[in-house]
């Protein structure tokens, strides 16, 4: 009996980390936690810093140009006299290009998602999925170059009035840039629909296409809508390809065959030019950036709202 106790005791001391029973501060443990904490807060700090700079610089801009004039003005001529800071041409450019991109990405994205989720064999799926992800990994500037050297000449062959830089070409490549995201999100959404729902459809003598279109799409509508909005929001913020393909002529027009400047396009143009800091032209990019930020923020909030509001009715 006593030997057992002795063994038990020695085992106990073997697993005690130190012989000392007093509470100790474990410095290395604390250091690790602090480090992890800092990592998490870095993103928060960065976001706050960027928003602060946006607010600061654009408030200097809005001290000179009234917000109302900025938001409703239809002439954007920030670098050439007579100066004018009406942002609507830039917003129009952005919307024309992004809506054009959606016109391509939404039907193709949803179509490929339905095919991948419901029709493709596992082998086909294993081939198509990574290819789509590859598309997502192509650098923006490559898309821009592709637009100028390939898409635009192609458009010019069909519509001779197409300008060298034009919104249509930007919209087309942008459509393919947001396509992977929409495809992947819609694919997830459709596959998340429960098997019992599909069976319910088939048991009512529906064909596969009728089940896909009549049941699965409506059932995943909220996630699908959210993916469209996120795609649109991504299109609005895309810069390099659009700046290359659409050119830098602010144009308040709906004609996609002419050059247009987008909000992001303007920001790169000025940021990479030789405009001196502190001038109104320089501050104008922060005003445009702030407007862009608000637009994307609203879109992202909207998509979150849709997802939450119509969250998975099943389970």
């Amino acid at each position: 009996m006593s030997t057992t106790t002795a063994i038990a005791n020695s085992d106990m001391s073997a697993i005690t980390r130190t012989g000392d029973a007093r509470l100790k501060i474990r410095w290395h443990e604390l250091a690790v936690v602090r480090w992890l904490q800092i990592c998490a807060w870095i993103s928060v700090a960065t976001t706050i810093a960027i928003v602060a700079i946006l607010v600061l610089e654009s408030s200097a801009f809005f001290a000179v140009v009234p917000v109302w004039n900025f938001l409703t003005g239809t002439n954007w001529s920030p670098l050439i006299d007579p100066r004018s800071f009406g942002v609507l041409p830039l917003i129009t450019g952005t919307l024309v290009v992004s809506l054009g991109a959606s016109l391509i990405a939404v039907p193709i994205g949803l179509g490929s998602a339905i095919y991948l989720a419901e029709y493709a064999s596992p082998t086909t799926r294993r081939f198509i999925k990574p290819t789509i992800e590859l598309l997502a990994g192509i650098p923006s500037v490559v898309f821009g170059y592709f637009a100028v050297t390939t898409v635009t000449p192609f458009l010019q062959a069909i519509f001779p009035s197409t300008e060298v830089f034009n919104a249509a070409s930007a919209a087309i490549v942008l459509g393919f840039m947001v396509l992977p995201m929409i495809t992947s999100l819609c694919d997830d959404a459709i596959r998340a629909a429960p098997r019992t729902l599909r069976e319910g459809g088939f048991a009512l003598a529906a064909t596969k296409a009728e089940v896909s279109i009549g049941i699965l799409i409506p059932a995943s509508m909220s996630a699908i809508m959210a993916s469209f909005i996120l795609g649109f929001s991504r299109a609005i913020g895309e810069t390099m390809a659009v700046a290359l393909a659409a050119g830098s002529t602010p144009n308040m027009s709906l004609n996609p065959l002419i050059s247009m400047q987008t909000m992001t396009g303007y920001i790169v143009q000025v940021a990479m030019g030789d405009v001196p800091h502190g001038t109104i032209e320089y501050q104008s990019i922060f005003a445009v950036a702030a407007a862009l930020f608000v637009m994307t923020l609203i879109l992202n909030l909207l998509s979150q709202f849709i997802v939450r509001r119509f969250a998975r009715q099943w389970e």
Binding site: P194, T196, G200, L204, G214, P218, A219, Q313, W314
Partner: peptide, 26 residues
């Protein structure tokens, strides 16, 4: 030959639509 499943699986749409969908596609 119709079927009713173990777990109720109505479509996420209106009561009326649940009834009419099958006949309408047929």
């Amino acid at each position: 030959v119709g079927m009713v499943f173990q777990k109720p699986n109505p479509f996420p749409s209106s009561i009326a639509k649940n009834i009419t969908w099958g006949p309408s596609i047929n």
